[in-house]
Design a protein around this nucleic acid. Structure first.
Length: 821
DNA sequence: GGAGCAGTCTTTTTT
DNA sequence: AGACTGCTCC
C-alpha cells in the first residue's frame, strides 16, 4: 500500500484544467503585481525566464518570494501553462507553501500545477504511468524504512549471513547510498564491491528482484527507476522534455546524484532550468546530498546566469556579521555577502555554564525574562523563541527543566507521527483490510497484539502460502481450514483471519470484489444492487482497532507511554475525517505528519538545527556549542574537513534563523553516554567575530562559587580564546544575577496574558492532590506524591525517580487509566 | 510464548 | 544512562 504523498488520483481532469491557457480577461486585469516590492536581483531572477539560471539565495533573502513570483510571471506573461512547469521541492511542506503563495500572487486560484511537488511525489506519478518499463504494475506499493529493513533481514538470513555482525540496517544504509548515487546493482563500482562483507552487491541485486516480485519500490527506487527509464527510452524522455518547458528546483544544494541526473535529463534540450539554493546551507551531505551539484552548476549548464540574492530581510546587522564571520571559515564556497539596511540590533550573546543542567536552567530563566521584557528589549512571546540543538538527545535536559518550571514548549521533529509504533501497527491493519495480499503488513500485525502465533506458527503460514502461491492472509486461512496450526494459536488465528474478511466486507459495503481493481466499487451500484448501509471508514477504522484487540492491548499496558499511544491512535482516527475512504487515507498519509496542533498557549520551540532550516524566530538559543558535540566528533572523524565544514554550515544555519536576538551557550561539563566529561568550547565560538559578540554574565544562582579552583574544567575553558575566557570568567563573578533572582522570586507568575487562567487551573490542581496520591505524568509516568508546596509537587515516580513537578502537568492515576478510545 | 538478562550502541532525517 | 536487541531459560 502506498502510504506517501502520491497525487496520481488527481490526474486527468485536473491536468485538462491546467493546460487551459489563462483567460484573456485574467491577463488583462493583471499587470505585474507580483513584481511589486522586489529588489533588483530578485526581479532579475523572476524575469530571466530562458536558459539556465542559478539563483544563489542566502538565508533570509526572499528566495521563496522570488521563486513564486517567477512562477506567477511564467503563467501571467503567457510564457507557460501551468502543466508545462515542473517545480520540484524536497518536502511536502515546501510544495504546499509554494502552491499557496503562487495562488496568492496570482490573485486567483491556480488551476492546477500538476507538476509542482516533491521529487518523490512527482516520480511516483511518472512511475505509475510507466511502471511496466521498470517491470512493475502501476499499482505498486511504496515501502517505508521499516518494511525495507524487514525484507533485507529475510534476505540476509537466506544468504546465511550472521545478521548480528552484519545488521540489516547497515545494508539498508549501503543500498540507500547506492540508490542516491543512481547506481543499479550492475553499476555498483568495484571500489564498493567489498561492502557488507563483500556480499553487498549480490544482496542488492536480490533485494531489487524481491521488490519486483512484491510489486514494490522503496524511496530510492522512485528516482532510480525514473532515471533508468529515461536513459533507456530516449523517445519517452523526449516527450517529457517537450512537455516540461520550464523547470524550477528549490534547495538545489540538497540534491543527490540521482536527483541531479533526473533533472539534467529533463533539462537537456531547452535548458530552461532555474535552480535555487545556497551552498552555505547544505547540511544533508550525510544522506547523499552533493554540494558539488550546486558548485558545478555553471559547468553543467554552460551560459548559466548566476543571480545572487544577498540583501537579507530577516536578521539584524550583528547577527548577519556573526554568521558571515563563521561561514567564512569554509573553503570552496560560491561566495555571497549578506547585507541588510536594517539596524545593527543586539550583538550575538555568548554565555558559558558549569554544566548542561545549569545551561538548561539558565535558558529557562532567560526565556521567562525575555517573555516579560528585560534588558531594554521588548517582550518576546515564547511562540517567537526557539532552542536549536545539534542532536535530539540534547533536548532532554531542556524538556526536564521546562516541565519542572512549567514553561510550555513544543518539540518539532522526533519520530514523525506516522513513524510511531502504534501508528504503523494501526496502518498495517488498515493496509491488510484494503489490500489483503500485503504480506509485509500481515507479518507486522499477525502477532500484535499477542495471539500466540510465534515464529513456528508464522513459518507454517509462510510455507503453506508459498506452496499454494497465495498471499499470507490466504495462507493463514488455509492453515486454519486444514487445521495445520494447532494449540492456542489456532483459535486466535481463526478469529484474526475472519476479522480481516469481515472488515473488508464492511469496507466494500457487503459486496465481494469481482477482480483486480474491484476495490473501487461504485456507490450507486451498491445502493441499487443491495441496499446495505455502508459503514463509514472512520467507524470501520475504530472497529478494526477494537475488534482486533489492538486498542485493548494498549489499554492494558501500564507503561508510561501507553496513554500517549492511545491518544495518537485517536488522532489517527480523527485524521481519517479528511478523507473519503481508507484507501485515500493510506495514499495520502504523509500529509498528517506535519499535523501541528497549534493555537494553544504560546510555546517555546525545541528542535534540531536540521529541522530549523528554512524557519525563522525573533529569538534563538543555540546551546551546546562544545567541541565534540558541536561540531560533532563523529562528523569530523568520519568525514574530516568535509564533515567539519558541514558542521560549520550548520552553525551558519543556526545563527541565521535569528531575527533579533541570538544567544550561543556552552557548558564546561556534560554527561556523555552516562559519563561526565569536561568539554572544550566549540571552535566555532572562536570564529565568531568579537565585534559582534557580547559576553553575558550568568547569574550563577545555583552555581559553584568555588570553581575558580585549580583543576576544574573551567580552567580548561579559560585557556581558549578571549571569548572563552571572558565567558568562563563571567561564570565566576556571579553577583549581578541576584537582582534578577529577587525579581523572579517576588513575581513567580510570568505569562501575563494567561496568568489568571493558570492560577485557576493551578488552584484546582493543588486541591486535587495530596501526599500519597497516585498520579500520572505524560513524560515521567506513574508516581506517588511525596510533598506539596504551592503548585509544586514532589513526586516519587515509579520509573523516573524523585522529581519536582508543577501540578498542572499531572493527572490523577485513575484518570490516566481509562483514557477512552 | 514470554520474562528477564547481557551485550551493544548511541547525529543529523525526508520521502 | 538508556534504549534496543538477541539470547537463555522457564
Amino acid at each position: 500500500m502506498n502510504r506517501f504523498d502520491d497525487d496520481i488520483g488527481e490526474s486527468d481532469a485536473f491536468e485538462a484544467a491546467a493546460s487551459r491557457p489563462l483567460s484573456a480577461r485574467a491577463m488583462a486585469a493583471r499587470p505585474t503585481p507580483y513584481l511589486d516590492g522586489l529588489n533588483p536581483e530578485q526581479r532579475r531572477a523572476v524575469e530571466t525566464l530562458d536558459g539556465p539560471v542559478l539563483m544563489l539565495a542566502g538565508a533570509g533573502t526572499g528566495k521563496t518570494r522570488a521563486l513564486t513570483a517567477r512562477i506567477a510571471h511564467l503563467l501571467l506573461s503567457g510564457t507557460a501553462r501551468p502543466n508545462e512547469i515542473l517545480a520540484v521541492t524536497f518536502t511536502n511542506k515546501a510544495a504546499r507553501e509554494m502552491k499557496t503563495r503562487v495562488a496568492n500572487l496570482m490573485g486567483q486560484p491556480v488551476e492546477g500545477m500538476p507538476w509542482l511537488g516533491t521529487f518523490h511525489a512527482i516520480c511516483v506519478k511518472l512511475l505509475r504511468r510507466h511502471a511496466e518499463l521498470a517491470g512493475l504494475k502501476s499499482n505498486f506499493t511504496i515501502l517505508d524504512t521499516d518494511d525495507q529493513v524487514r525484507l533485507m533481514k529475510q534476505l540476509i538470513n537466506a544468504a546465511e549471513i550472521d545478521e548480528k555482525r552484519w545488521p540489516a540496517r547497515q545494508l539498508a544504509g549501503i543500498i540507500d547510498g547506492w540508490k542516491n548515487r543512481a547506481l543499479t546493482p550492475d553499476k555498483v563500482p568495484a571500489a564498493d564491491a567489498g561492502a557488507f562483507n563483500r556480499r553487498g552487491p549480490e544482496l542488492y541485486a536480490h533485494y531489487q528482484s524481491r521488490l519486483r516480485d512484491l510489486n514494490a519500490v522503496d524511496f530510492g527506487d522512485l528516482l532510480l527507476h525514473m532515471v533508468t527509464i529515461f536513459q533507456a527510452h530516449p523517445d519517452l524522455l523526449g516527450q517529457y522534455q517537450r512537455w516540461f518547458r520550464y523547470i524550477l528546483v528549490d534547495e538545489y544544494q540538497d540534491t543527490n546524484v540521482a536527483q541531479y541526473l533526473w533533472l539534467r535529463l529533463l533539462a537537456q534540450g531547452h535548458s530552461n532550468i532555474c535552480v535555487v539554493g545556497d551552498d552555505d546551507q547544505s547540511i544533508y551531505g550525510w544522506r547523499g546530498a552533493e554540494v558539488g551539484n550546486i558548485l558545478r552548476f555553471e559547468k553543467d549548464f554552460p551560459g548559466a546566469q548566476v543571480i545572487r540574492l544577498e540583501q537579507n530581510y530577516r536578521s539584524t546587522g550583528h547577527i548577519l556579521a556573526a554568521a558571515s564571520g563563521v561561514i567564512a571559515g569554509n573553503k570552496g564556497r560560491l561566495g555571497k555577502t549578506l547585507w541588510t539596511d536594517g539596524e545593527d540590533g543586539h550583538k550575538v550573546r555568548l554565555i558559558g555554564h558549569w554544566d548542561g543542567d545549569e545551561e538548561a536552567r539558565w535558558v529557562g530563566e532567560e526565556i521567562e525574562a525575555m517573555a516579560r521584557g528585560t534588558r531594554g528589549m521588548d517582550p518576546v512571546s515564547p511562540d517567537h523563541m526557539a532552542i536549536l540543538v545539534r542532536a535530539s538527545h540534547q533536548m532532554r535536559a531542556f524538556e526536564d527543566r521546562f516541565l519542572t518550571i512549567g514553561l510550555p514548549y513544543r518539540v518539532i521533529g522526533g519520530p514523525r507521527f506516522y513513524e510511531r509504533l502504534e501508528i504503523r501497527d494501526a496502518m498495517a491493519y488498515f493496509r491488510l483490510v484494503v489490500s489483503p495480499d500485503d504480506d509485509l503488513a500481515f507479518e507486522r500485525v499477525v502477532n500484535t497484539p499477542k495471539r500466540g502465533l510465534g515464529d513456528k506458527a508464522q513459518q507454517s503460514i509462510q510455507k503453506i502460502a508459498r506452496a499454494n502461491g497465495v498471499s499470507l492472509v490466504d495462507g493463514a486461512r488455509l492453515a486454519v481450514e486444514t487445521g495445520l496450526i494447532g494449540g492456542k494459536g489456532a483459535k486466535e488465528l481463526r478469529s484474526f483471519v475472519h476479522g480481516l474478511a469481515r472488515w473488508r466486507d464492511l469496507m466494500l459495503g457487503g459486496l465481494r470484489p469481482v477482480g483486480p481493481g474491484a476495490d473501487l466499487i461504485d456507490d450507486d451500484l451498491i445502493e441499487e444492487d443491495r441496499p446495505v448501509r455502508k459503514i463509514s471508514h472512520i467507524e470501520l477504522a475504530e472497529k478494526i482497532l477494537d475488534e482486533s484487540g489492538y486498542t485493548a492491548m494498549w489499554q492494558n499496558d501500564k507503561t508510561p507511554e501507553a496513554p500517549g499511544r492511545l491518544e495518537n491512535l485517536k488522532e489517527l482516527v480523527k485524521a481519517l475525517e479528511g478523507f473519503e475512504n481508507l484507501q485515500g487515507f493510506l495514499e495520502h498519509v504523509s500529509l498528517i505528519m506535519d499535523n501541528e496542533q497549534d493555537g494553544e498557549d504560546p510555546k517555546v520551540t525545541l528542535m534540531t538545527l536540521h529541522a530549523a532550516k528554512g524557519l525563522e524566530f525573533p529569538a534563538v538559543f543555540l546551546p551546546g556549542w562544545e567541541d565534540g558535540l558541536f561540531p560533532s566528533q563523529r562528523a569530523m572523524d568520519e568525514e574530516g574537513v568535509k564533515g567539519l565544514e558541514e558542521e560549520r554550515r550548520l552553525a551558519y544555519v543556526g545563527i541565521t534563523r535569528a531575527e533579533r536576538v541570538c544567544t550561543v551557550s556552552f557548558a564546561g561539563n556534560r554527561r556523555v553516554y552516562g559519563q561526565w566529561q569536561s568539554q572544550m568550547p566549540s571552535r566555532f565560538i572562536d570564529e565568531l567575530p568579537e565585534d559582534h559578540v557580547e559576553v553575558l554574565t550568568p547569574s550563577g544562582l545555583h552555581g559553584h562559587s568555588g570553581m575558580g579552583a585549580s583543576a576544574s574544567p573551567m580552567a580548561g575553558m579559560m585557556a581558549g580564546s578571549d571569548l572563552h575566557a571572558q565567558a568562563a570568567r563571567a561564570d565566576v563573578y556571579n553577583s549581578p544575577g541576584w537582582r534578577r533572582l529577587q525579581t523572579n522570586q517576588t513575581r513567580p507568575g510570568l505569562r501575563q496574558p494567561s496568568e489568571a487562567r493558570h492560577m485557576t487551573i493551578d488552584a484546582e490542581a493543588i486541591s486535587a492532590f495530596a501526599i500519597d496520591d497516585r498520579v500520572f505524568h505524560q513524560k515521567f509516568g506513574y508516581g506517588t506524591v511525596t510533598s506539596v508546596e504551592g503548585d509544586k509537587l514532589g513526586i516519587a515516580f515509579d520509573k523516573a525517580g524523585e522529581k519536582h513537578v508543577v501540578a498542572r502537568f499531572l493527572v490523577s492515576a485513575d484518570a490516566a487509566d481509562d483514557v477512552p478510545f
